[in-house]
């Protein structure tokens, strides 16, 4: 389902407003007296599901607005993989200890296994599926991987690429050591670090060429 971006902003604003109403409702009378779709009873207990509308979110993922029914306790990795079908994001440890699940949230690398989906309502999420141009041209960092054949099994690859893309946004011209530090939150169980780093350095170079052009 594709929409234009502007409605997202309207949507986001209305969500913010209804959220504020909701909190007021909770504080005021113990019951959220709002007609917005965020309505749910303040007394809703553990395990008891709240009003269905309360879980419906519109997320900005890879520049598209995607609607999903998301539980409060659901992580972003879970939503991306199992609700939105974006299985390029991998789950390794589910404990913020491997980096396989790395995605960009407002351009900054995060472990999506350790982010609640409901906290990214008004943010922009980018996954590996969102890097290439719609015409199929790969992102310069992806191209770097092809150029250098940087991975073995590549389970860790999407996480590494998103870490690199995020890091390069703020450090476009890193030394090899600096880039290694920038990518240090990602593990590779095939231990292919040297080639991965070479590929990412090539990606950085490709990116500089593209942005100069």
């Amino acid at each position: 389902m594709k929409e234009e971006i502007p409605p997202s902003e309207r949507e986001a604003t209305s969500l913010r407003l209804s959220r504020r109403n909701f909190i007021k409702g909770v504080i005021g009378g113990g019951v959220a007296a709002s007609s917005a779709h965020y309505l749910f009873r303040a007394s809703s207990l553990l395990g008891e599901s709240s009003a269905p509308g309360d879980r419906l979110l519109t997320l900005n993922v890879n520049g598209q607005l995607r609607r999903a029914d998301v539980m409060k306790q659901e992580t972003l990795a879970w939503t991306l993989r199992y609700k939105l079908g974006l299985t390029g994001t991998k789950l390794g440890c589910d404990r913020a200890e491997c980096g396989a699940c790395t995605v960009l949230i407002d351009d900054v690398p995060h472990y999506s296994c350790s982010v609640l989906t409901h906290t990214v309502r008004n943010k922009k999420v980018v996954t590996i599926e969102g890097l290439a141009n719609p015409d199929g041209t790969l992102h310069p960092v992806q191209q770097g991987v092809i150029d250098e054949q940087g991975f073995q099994c590549a389970f860790c690859m999407s996480g590494f690429i998103l870490s690199a893309v995020g890091y390069l946004k703020t450090h476009p011209n890193p030394t090899r050591a600096e880039l290694a530090h920038g990518l240090s939150g990602n593990l590779c169980r095939c231990q292919d670090y040297d080639k991965i780093l070479t590929a990412m350095m090539r990606g950085a170079e490709n990116l500089r060429k593209v942005s100069r052009a």
Binding site: R19, L46, G47, M71, Q73, W78, H118
Partner: peptide, 17 residues
């Protein structure tokens, strides 16, 4: 054991102030 399931349910409150 590492449980790779969804966390048990909780209410999520997101105050702005």
């Amino acid at each position: 054991a590492v449980i790779r399931d969804i966390m048990p349910a909780f209410q999520l409150l997101q105050p702005g102030t």
